[in-house]
Simulated scan of single mutants.
Amino acid sequence: MTVKAYAVTKAKGDFEPFEFELGDIDPYEVDISVESCGICHSDLSMVDDEWGMAQFPLVPGHEVVGKVSAVGDLVSHVKVGDRVGLGWHAGYCMMCDQCMGGDHNLCANAEPTIAGRHGGFADTVRAKAASVVKIPDGLDASEAGPLLCGGIAVFNPMVQVGLSPTGSVGVIGIGGLGHMGLKFAAAWGCHVTAFTSDSKRQEALDMGAHDTINSRDPDAIKAAAGRFDLVLSTVNVPLDWNAVLATLKPRGRLMMPGAVTEPLGINVLPDMMFKQLAVGSSPVGPPVVIRQMLDFAARHNIAPVNEHFPMSKVNDAFEHLRSGKVRYRIVLDRE
């Protein structure tokens, strides 16, 4: 089968039409006829080869929504015609302790959808069946793509820390990840505070925040000492992390789905030790939590705020992403 796609042939290159061949489908694989695909900042990092793992030509796209067009002989949980989603992982080993324990996202041999294979900026994408999840009928499939990476990146930490619905949550950075963190935490039942600029204050309140803290005001952050059970940091820039830790209650958690690449410079004393705090992160989520997240989003009518581009305008979409002016995610619609 010939797949028509859009690819970059070098780091930081422009997208060009690209075709490649898919061989016979394996017994445990699924082919998805792509309807839409979100653009994640991770796609930009791969296009620019920031992580040194891109292989060119590269077809990005790991927030895929579409209909199943073919299934292998041993696939049982989806059938041709089902509307499904595919996120960061397109396969797992299915035999390691992590997979057998339900933590597929921690599998050492997990297969990224856009590393070593071609992703969803295409008319068809192929993946191992275990990584493919049904889209609930209650979700608007045309808007759901960003939930499959950005959404699970902020939902999974809430599950992993056992967040109480009576908890107090701070969300740092109201952008592509953070705005979904606000919506999820508010629907969870928590009191939610957005760390953001004054220019986004009203938007944060409209998306579920109960109050805001000016993230550029050290005194405002200091005044929030001991307030939060969980702080979700969705930014990828260095902050005064010791000041952030001071906003946590005893046994509080700072979780960092934002990919900060610089050392954190965290002091163990006084707050981490005397308040028994913890700092962590997590790689997206396993299929079972992705399904839970999609069901939760459908139940509470949660959707990311998206801007749409036709897939043929992928270069315009990436230029808009690089500008930093996106509100708040981009979805490519296949014409």
Rank of each mutant, 00 (worst) to 15 (best):
K4G: 01
I302W: 03
N236S: 14
A224C: 12
A144E: 06
V132D: 00
A130L: 09
L163V: 06
P218F: 05
Q160G: 05
V169W: 02
R83H: 07
F296D: 00
R126M: 09
V284A: 07
L254C: 10
V305F: 02
Y28N: 07
S168W: 08
P57D: 09
A110F: 14
V59I: 14
V284C: 03
P286F: 02
L321I: 07
A278S: 15
V235C: 11
D123H: 14
R227Q: 15
R83T: 13
V326G: 00
N105V: 06
D229T: 12
N156F: 10
K275N: 13
G101P: 04
H179R: 05
G324V: 07
L182Q: 10
G102V: 02
G208V: 06
A127V: 11
M255Q: 12
S69H: 11
N242D: 12
D137N: 12
V268Y: 12
H118K: 11
K79I: 14
P310D: 05
V331D: 01
A225G: 05
P157I: 04
G170Y: 11
V284T: 07
L232P: 11
V279P: 06
F228T: 10
V260R: 07
A70E: 12
V244R: 12
A297P: 02
A115E: 15
V65L: 05
M53A: 13
S142K: 11
A144Y: 09
A141C: 10
P17E: 08
G66E: 06
G145S: 12
D73W: 01
L205Y: 05
M94W: 12
L147A: 14
P263K: 14
G138N: 08
L230T: 00
R227E: 14
E50L: 13
M53S: 13
L277K: 06
A153Y: 09
D82K: 08
L106I: 02
V161I: 14
Q202D: 15
V268F: 12
G181A: 15
G38K: 03
G119P: 13
R126Y: 08
S215Y: 13
D240G: 05
P310F: 06
L264A: 11
R216W: 02
A278H: 08
V231T: 10
C107T: 11
G265C: 03
E319C: 00
P146W: 00
P238N: 14
H300Q: 07
Y6S: 07
V231R: 10
R251C: 00
M255I: 14
H191T: 13
V279N: 07
L269F: 15
S164T: 09
C96T: 04
S131A: 15
A209Y: 05
V169N: 10
F309M: 08
V125D: 06
S312L: 01
S215K: 11
L264G: 03
Q98C: 12
R334G: 03
V331N: 03
I39W: 02
N236E: 10
A54P: 00
F296N: 04
V75P: 03
P57W: 08
L147W: 02
V268Q: 10
T212C: 15
A278E: 13
I174G: 06
L44Q: 09
G176A: 13
P310G: 00
R117Y: 07
V47W: 01
D295V: 01
